[in-house]
Structures are given as structure tokens and as C-alpha cells.
Design a protein around this nucleic acid. Structure first.
Lengths: 121, 121
DNA sequence: ACGCTGTTTCGAGAACCGTCAAACTAGAGG
DNA sequence: CCTCTAGTTTGACGGTTCTCGAAACAGCGT
């Protein structure tokens, strides 16, 4: 719980948008797991549900899916390991919230620097 | 070649940032494959190389990796099927370029609507 | 202390993914 | 027509991921 993310957000923070210049191989190794974490429909919805509110209880996440508790827990762990969310237990329940810095950086990576005026036919 | 993407960009275009409100299940099914396509270090670098220039030849992509030609071709196909890039053959060579609309929409999904003033401890 | 509820961890099976070599297609140039 | 180069497709192998039930763990209430 509340364990440190496997991915170091600082290594991401140093990267300009990927459309600006070629991503280095080692940067790609760090960033790709974050995108992969969002690359599952269940996790993408979980991320959306968590990011839409200041924080949310697992007990409010699980019923939204036709999946077992352990499966939801697994997906939450993937998001945690990717450094996208963090959690802490308060009494009986565990609350999740987004790691705003990491989430914002991930979005920054996809920014389009210039309108790229090549009016593709 | 130049085949239509499996993912319909219009279905993505209608989605606000995922931190704005809960993503619908069917929207997540459409969007997740795009993030998954970026969730591999090789594909993320390929995407970066393609997005950094107006267009680029496969013959300029392959030598940058310690991977076989077929493997690069496979990863390019994943990016194509995700609707993130498109390609066309001109003579001997095949040129790839980013689908700017889809790429921009994907970035928009990760935008943070409000500063989320919960000063994380 | 005991049981009850919520959550995570463990173990296993099925499906999926990344990689390569080999075979195939597309075009250029004799 | 033949051959050469550039890319893609096919088929296969090994590793990873998704899912579940069972079990373990963490607090609360009695």
C-alpha cells in the first residue's frame, strides 16, 4: 500500500512531447509501461473513475465492473506500479487517487508542438 | 497498405478528457487499443520517430533498432491498426506518417481540466 | 476473542503478445 | 523474363497478461 511506483516520474518529466524529437530508447523503456497501463479497457475506465474525483474507494469501483474483486485489485496494482495512482487505507476501506504530476506529464508527452500544416490529402 | 484503421477516430473525438467524467465502457474499448499501441518501448520510439517529421521511410526506421525487419513491420502494423499512423508505398519504399487527428485526440484525453488543488502530501 | 466485511495475494489455466526465420508480394532495372 | 532490394505475411516458440477461486490479511463491531 502506498508503495513507491516502479516508474520514476522524474525520468518522464524531463521528456519533451514525443512529436518534438526522437525519444531515446531508455526513455521509451520508462514511459511505455505508463501507456501500457492505460491500454486495457478496464484500467482505462478505472483511471477515468479515479481521475474524475479527488479520491474514490475501491468499494465504489468494483461494483461498476462484471469482474471479481481480485481482478479489479490486480488492475489497480498495475496502475499503481505504473505510478499513475496512489492509495492508502483508512479504516476498512482503501482510497485511490490520481498522481496528478505523473498523469499531467503523460499528457504532455502527447502534445502536438506545431499544427503540422501538411494537409494530408 | 493505407488500410482503414480498426479504430474509428470519430468515436474518440467525442470523448472529453478522461479526468472530466467517467469513460463509458464502449468508449474505453475503443480508446484502450490506442494506448496499448503506445505501451511498447519499440512502438513508442517508432511513433516518436514518425511524429517528429512529416513522413519517414521504413528503411530509415528499421536500422535504429536491433530487431528483425518483420518485427518492425509487425509493430508498424499495430500502430496502423490503432489508427495512429498511416502509410503508402511510393516506388520501392513505404512511407509512414502520423494521423494528426487521432494523435491529437489521444493527447486531449489526458488533459487535466482543473489544477486539482489537492496538494498531495 | 470471535466473526464479519473489504481488500490483497497466491496459484493456475487460457488467451494474448513480441520475436524470429522463411516464404511471399511489390516495384525497379536490366 | 529474371533478379535484386524493400516490406509484409505466415507460422511457430516462449514469455506475459487476464481472469478466477481459494486463501491470507486488515479493521470494525460485538
Amino acid at each position: 500500500m502506498s508503495k513507491q511506483p516502479v516508474v520514476d516520474p522524474d525520468l518522464v518529466a524531463c521528456c519533451p512531447p514525443i512529436a518534438t524529437r526522437r525519444l531515446e530508447a531508455n526513455q521509451a523503456e520508462v514511459i511505455a509501461p505508463m501507456f501500457r497501463a492505460l491500454g486495457d479497457p478496464v484500467r482505462l475506465r478505472l483511471m477515468s473513475m479515479i481521475a474524475s474525483v479527488p479520491e474514490i474507494c475501491v468499494c465504489d469501483l468494483t461494483p461498476e465492473f462484471a469482474l471479481s474483486g481480485p481482478t479489479i485489485s490486480h488492475h489497480l496494482k498495475v496502475l499503481r506500479d505504473a505510478g499513475l495512482v496512489e492509495s492508502d487505507r483508512r479504516g476498512t476501506w482503501v482510497w485511490y487517487r490520481v498522481r496528478a504530476d505523473a498523469f499531467r506529464q503523460l499528457g504532455a508527452l502527447l502534445r502536438v508542438p506545431a499544427p503540422t500544416a501538411e494537409a494530408s490529402a
